[in-house]
Design a protein around this nucleic acid. Sequence first.
DNA 1: TGCGAATGTTCGAATATTTGAATATGACAA
DNA 2: TTGTCATATTCAAATATTCGAACATTCGCA
Lengths: 122, 122
Amino acid sequence: MIVPHRVLVLKELADLLGVLSHPHRLRIIEELRDGEHDVNSLQAALQISHSGVSQHLMLLRANRLVSERREGRHVFYHLRQPEIAVWLMEATNFLERGTVDANELRKAIGKARKDWSGTTQR
Amino acid sequence: MIVPHRVLVLKELADLLGVLSHPHRLRIIEELRDGEHDVNSLQAALQISHSGVSQHLMLLRANRLVSERREGRHVFYHLRQPEIAVWLMEATNFLERGTVDANELRKAIGKARKDWSGTTQR
DNA sequence: TGCGAATGTTCGAATATTTGAATATGACAA
DNA sequence: TTGTCATATTCAAATATTCGAACATTCGCA
């Protein structure tokens, strides 16, 4: 039995997950969680080349995860749907998969959750 | 300021999302949502080569998303954390991103949600 | 024992993603 | 207007992913 709408939705969902599946892009989303930032401040936070930041932002923009606001020569980016950051954080529940040292990871997850809790806008 | 535990967690999270970001693997997770299936029945459902199914299962297994139960010459797979299927379904909220025809996608999402609701195993 | 069905593994070609370097644009300040 | 800073875009190399075909293994049954 062919179920075309499922196939379509799963394709879209896979694309979305693919866009999200990069540490730098997750960091960007994390940074934008508590409000807008310009490219410079993102670059400072991520410690990668500005062209890298720019390209990741381009991908996020193309997939409508962020949008921009220009102000003079600065471009400020913000999350279109801040709830996505909350949703991503829930994924830490599924994270203990034994690929790195389990204890170290568990501790890191605990700390990260603490960092993240309560800071999300809206 | 360097925040190593965040980097670690985001790396892990990105890996997880990467594993999930393939339509066939999402289909497998969807199929397994309501209980275990063997490779054959998954292949019948997905309509791809058995080696494809096998390779996707291998990846899911390596990332501890599924586990197996052998019974004679059959191998039955099930989700380690069925809640992950529920979590994935929530992502359909973020899906309307304009990459395909928005109306068509909206309709498909509606149907898929209907299919999915209520069927998930505890 | 030997055959066939169910599953797993390996390989290489095709394709996609990531990266940094180089170049371009556009706005502000002097 | 000229220079410079913030951001975008393009390109090509390096790397990773996906896929099907071929081969391997294991189990159950005749």
